[in-house]
Design a protein around this nucleic acid. Structure first.
Lengths: 236, 236
DNA sequence: AATCGTATGATTGCATACAATAATACTTGT
DNA sequence: ACAAGTATTATTGTATGCAATCATACGATT
């Protein structure tokens, strides 16, 4: 087992303590709060049934994630997530997932490797059956195994953040035109490269896997769920 | 100018609003608070002359940055930064700085390019004179120009964070054995590649620039400022 | 003597109260 | 009617109070 409990870090975000944070985060990512909208502490607090204190704490975290911008003594404004953000994140992720796969090749345990194999075979089954929810979950799990196996707290933290960031986009991607099956085939190739201790190939495959996912998304026009407008076009 | 004010985002961290956050952050990075040490809200509040509220907000941010871990209803514990963290971050940075240089090649303005040139020539002067503080400042500035020029809010945010994260390490590196001069020569090559619109070469050079910086650091034994111990070796 | 249960103290989580700041509306003088 | 200055209101920033939770120590029971 690695030196830190990755699962703990992840689940914490969904437990009681991070409830307010996660809710606001989702509301921004889902588009409930529009770009440049001002978020009032009391209003959101009342909506969630809490006082300003936890809301403020969540705001600070959200600012660090780049989802809102806090200007002192004025307010918190939604930064939103544009199509360019999604593109940038996919490009960044493609590099980092490659690095992750390479490092995972060097550090993966037998147990983790078997988990990967199981994941791929199970996903094959669900892909054939068209079980989209299970596919999304398995895809999520596949990558998280690698995040753990890469043995880098720093890299894992980054990838988990980005992974969540584009979660909604990704889920829709998998449900489109057989990408789920193809995606899992790519997973299998990555898994086999790691199994054969070919770090170079694992890196390349993981890199291309993310690029393919992005291209598929663009091809299907799914990037349109977020407007491509730029922050320049705001009112003065 | 790009669509977001990068300088504003950066300076904000040092202005009044983030004072408490920055102070605790520095104290962790500088080693004042040791690994696994428990941070008490009241104690730190008193030390900084503020109440628990701003301290708690800072804690939440620090947790997101991975510098502390908050366990609910118990306390905040320093995660520290190990030599492996530094190594990982340099490897991650090397990829991202490469990407940044490539994107900057595509989006840099004439004005920014001239700023880069000026920076390199000025750094030559200070390198010859042995002005270490100015060298560190110019190095910092060089990279920040690229972060702006790459035209990606997401990438810039990442790189700025990492850049700050290893700031102390980096400053010491520059002061060692002529690395300052060599580093600036690498800057010049990157700048010229960008000027000639050779994104591929700019990416490779920027990538190698970071790797070289890390290797130099290791060669000079500077990695020893942080212990290589793992989080496993903690008490139960 | 060992273990379980209880009590006590410390610390966090959240709510509220007050102060400081910024935006807006209003008034007053020209 | 317009402009400048002032008052008012809304919102954030910070401090503090109270409840909930956890750790520790002590004592009772087997």
């Amino acid at each position: 087992m690695s030196s830190y409990d990755l699962k703990q870090e992840v689940t914490d975000k969904y437990s009681l303590r991070g409830r307010v944070f996660s809710k606001i985060r989702e509301d921004i990512l889902s588009g409930k709060y529009k770009d440049h909208e001002e978020l009032k502490e009391v209003a959101i607090g009342e909506e969630l049934g809490v006082s300003r204190t936890p809301v403020r704490e969540a705001f600070r975290q959200l600012e660090l994630e780049g989802l809102i911008q806090i200007v002192p003594n004025k307010g918190a404004y939604v930064t939103g997530i544009t199509a360019k953000d999604v593109e940038d994140i996919y490009m960044i992720r493609s590099l980092l997932e490659g690095l992750c796969a390479r490092w995972a090749t060097e550090h993966i345990t037998q147990e983790q490797l078997e988990e990967l194999e199981e994941n791929v075979y199970l996903a094959d089954f669900h892909a054939a059956k068209g079980h989209l929810d299970q596919m999304a979950e398995l895809d999520n799990h596949f990558h998280h195994i690698l995040y753990e196996a890469c043995n880098s707290k720093q890299l894992a933290r980054l990838l988990i953040d980005f992974h969540e960031y584009v979660l909604r986009v990704r889920k829709k991607t998998l449900s489109n035109g057989g990408r789920g099956k193809i995606s899992n085939d790519e997973h299998r190739q990555i898994m086999e490269a790691i199994k054969e201790k070919d770090g170079e190939r694992a890196e390349t495959l993981a890199h291309e896997h993310i690029i393919n996912a992005y291209n598929n998304m663009v091809k299907n026009g799914l990037y349109q769920i977020y407007p491509m407008e730029d922050a320049d076009s705001r009112e003065p």
